[in-house]
Design a protein around this nucleic acid. Structure first.
Length: 235
DNA sequence: TTGTGATCATCT
DNA sequence: AGATGATCACAA
């Protein structure tokens, strides 16, 4: 998605942000894109970030890729979440890249993951790959902060995973680890390399990794806040 | 080149 | 079918 029409000014309050997000609910990506002078791609294979970037633009997020919340003044992170017809997330949610060299001694409080997930604006969007991107509709947004139980869960996983990485065990970390939070590659390709520390404290090059929220975790978040059809009955 | 926006493409 | 590991575009 390039250039486009004049940018939207940042929302001045949570109320305003939520109002803007609610105004998008039910609308198609094609319609929203048109209003901002961009066009929807036929599919997302070569435009994986299209939906997220479009929604941020529509909501007035400060453009660019920076290591701060999408709405710095509000401390809110915006995440689009592809869901199926039942409202169940189709994909995991990327949280942040992992600073492999500095995980040793890091603490949950103040960590990038803790700060990014402290307040999230979830924007569901139809994620059925068979649906033309321009026809996919946006859903009702949810301004969410982790419950104490959710935060405890996230913290538990984060401490296990970051501890392993901090002790030089990044190569031992697989996607299978973690109930809510997991570590997976985050790279342009399998040839990408980032500096990390091994168990002896020596540098070595390894695949860049990122923290992701499992789809099963975000499914529970949505279930707790929306009135969704029971997964058991439908088919 | 790196971080943010994520989804794709296989494998089990 | 669901999850893991791989991958794509863009801005700064």
């Amino acid at each position: 998605m390039s250039a486009g029409l004049p940018p939207v000014s940042p929302p001045e309050s949570e109320v305003e942000l939520l109002a803007r997000a609610r105004a998008l609910a039910g609308r198609t990506l094609g319609a929203v894109a048109g209003e901002h002078g961009v066009s929807a791609p036929p599919d997302l294979r070569r435009a994986k970030g299209f939906v997220g970037t479009l929604v941020e633009r529509a909501l007035g997020a400060t453009a660019g890729s920076r290591a701060e919340p999408d709405f710095p003044a509000l401390g809110v992170e915006c995440k689009t979440l592809p869901v199926d017809a039942r409202g169940v997330p189709c994909e995991s949610t990327f949280v942040c890249t992992i600073a492999l060299e500095t995980m040793a001694g890091a603490e949950w409080e103040g960590s990038v993951v803790q700060r990014k997930l402290a307040k999230v604006l979830w924007v569901p969007v139809e994620g059925d790959r068979r649906l033309e991107v321009a026809r996919r509709r946006l859903g009702e947004p949810l301004l969410w902060s982790p419950s104490s139980a959710e935060e405890a869960e996230l913290r538990h996983d984060w401490e296990e995973l970051s501890g392993l990485i901090g002790r030089g065990g990044v190569e031992q970390v697989r996607g299978e680890l973690g109930r809510a939070l997991q570590v997976r590659p985050k790279a342009a390709g399998s040839w990408s390399r980032r500096r990390a520390l091994d168990a002896e404290g020596a540098f070595f090059a390894t695949l860049p990794r990122g923290f992701y929220l499992r789809a099963t975790f975000t499914a529970r978040v949505l279930q707790a806040h929306y009135h969704l059809p029971g997964a058991a009955g439908a088919r």
